[in-house]
């Protein structure tokens, strides 16, 4: 494809989700592209909530859309397309996290993927703290990490989390309680977060 192709505005599938699903089921590339355009922002946001800003975001996003296309025939109610895509995004992120954990015991990064050493002096304090929060979330067990991210970063209701993750409401609540407890414990022992909270407290009491 010529380089200038990026300038062309992608065409939108003007119809509603039901027509879009019909087009996807018919295997129409136009509908596939429209589907991608309509939900790419949402999918990338959900994936980022669960995984953080990830170098493989593009691949994960494509995986989500590919899985969606493959299983579009299992969607019973086309009006629930967005919730269904959200669910696939969460499931794909979960798969990705587990895959990484499995491969993590022996990991050699190619030279161009080795993360740069970050100078702490260059980063503002707030960013340290936010990064520390992300590190804590990433250290949580996979299921707790997902529940926590969806609740506190995406601000989803607990019933929606249960639907998205395929849990019962009771399981979702139990997992949420457990991940809150875990987060709090880990956050309390993190010097960056503690310093930030202390600073906020001083500011509040001023």
């Amino acid at each position: 494809m010529p380089k200038e192709a990026a300038k062309v505005r992608p065409l939108m599938f003007a119809q509603d989700d039901a027509s879009l699903v019909e087009g996807l089921r018919a295997g129409h590339v136009g509908a596939g592209t429209a589907f991608y355009n309509r939900y790419v922002t949402h999918v990338q946001r959900i994936v980022t909530r669960v995984m953080g800003v990830d170098a493989e975001l593009m691949d994960i996003t494509n995986e989500v859309f590919f899985q969606s296309l493959k299983s579009i025939h299992t969607l019973n109610d086309p009006q629930l397309l967005k919730a269904w895509v959200t669910r696939i995004a969460v499931f794909t992120s979960r798969k990705w996290i587990r895959k990484r954990k499995r491969n993590n015991w022996l990991k050699f990064l190619p030279a161009d993927e080795v993360p740069e050493a970050v100078s702490k002096e260059e980063e503002p304090r707030d960013r340290h703290a936010a990064k520390a929060v992300r590190d804590i979330i990433n250290k949580m067990p996979t299921e707790e990490r997902i529940v926590f991210s969806l609740r506190y970063l995406e601000q989803m209701q607990i019933s929606d989390i249960a639907d998205t993750c395929g849990y019962s409401l009771r399981t979702a609540k139990r997992r949420l309680a457990k991940c809150e407890w875990r987060f709090k414990r880990m956050a309390e022992s993190d010097p960056e977060i503690a310093a930030r909270l202390e600073a906020s407290e001083k500011w509040r009491n001023r």
Partner: peptide, 28 residues
């Protein structure tokens, strides 16, 4: 931790907004 979590979400959203979605589309 309310503020910290909000900051994390916002900073990640900022990062996300820099992603070239058209590039992802052609890949797809």
């Amino acid at each position: 931790y309310e503020t910290l979590l909000r900051e994390l979400a916002e900073s990640e959203e900022r990062e996300l907004s820099k992603v070239d979605k058209n590039a992802a589309l052609s890949l797809f």
